[in-house]
């Protein structure tokens, strides 16, 4: 999908109302909450295979996802907001992933990074131990294709997730909305 190229300083939600002697910013509480949530996505340190290296690349100086405020990677699920499933999920790992997801407090988001997490990818056929897509285990908000996706693609996925949070829609709502719009 296509995202807007947002300017470096993401505007505070709401509109400026001109009144004599200046302006005031009016915005609804929901918008402010979604603004805060979308700009403060702390990922869980969770990487199972190759995609984890690209996730580390995205954190590294060249791509630097701290620009969006994502750099506070938490090792404990209690404090994380988003799981980036970076790598294959196998049958033995699936209960652990579910448990990690359950341990996260709401609101929580999931990004399936790469072919393995999206659908099993290279390990879809003829394997006895791979989960065919992480969404069989936990609900996924954003899917990124690629094997592994480049760091920019992961940044794109995070921006896509931000757009979703800002819209305030649930997973099902946003899916039907996009199905209607055809994209």
């Amino acid at each position: 999908m296509d995202v807007k190229v947002t300017p470096p300083s993401a505007p505070f939600p709401g509109s400026v109302q001109e009144i004599p002697g200046g302006g005031i910013v009016l915005s609804t509480l929901d918008d402010v909450i979604n603004w805060a949530r979308s700009n403060s996505l702390w990922p869980l340190v969770f990487g199972t295979s190759c995609c984890a290296i690209e996730m580390m690349s995205a954190a590294s100086a060249k791509y630097d996802f701290s620009r969006f405020g994502f750099e506070v990677a938490r090792a404990t699920p209690r404090q994380a907001d988003v799981i980036i499933i970076a790598g294959t999920i196998v049958n033995k790992m699936a209960p652990v992933l579910k448990r990690l997801f359950d341990q996260m407090p709401d609101p929580k988001y999931v990004i399936a990074m790469g072919a393995c997490a999206t659908s099993g990818g290279p390990f879809f056929y003829n394997t006895y131990s791979v989960v065919k897509g992480a969404d069989h285990v936990i609900p996924v908000d954003v899917y990124v294709a690629g094997c592994p996706p480049r760091p920019e693609a992961l940044l794109h996925a995070l921006i896509t997730l931000q757009e979703k949070i800002k819209s305030g829609l649930t997973r099902d709502q946003i899916r039907t909305q996009f199905a209607e719009n055809g994209k």
Binding site: M1, V144, T160, I174, R175
Partner: peptide, 12 residues
Amino acid sequence: TFEHSVYDRRLL
């Protein structure tokens, strides 16, 4: 192209 993020995996 590399921007393949979607909300629904059927779109892929």
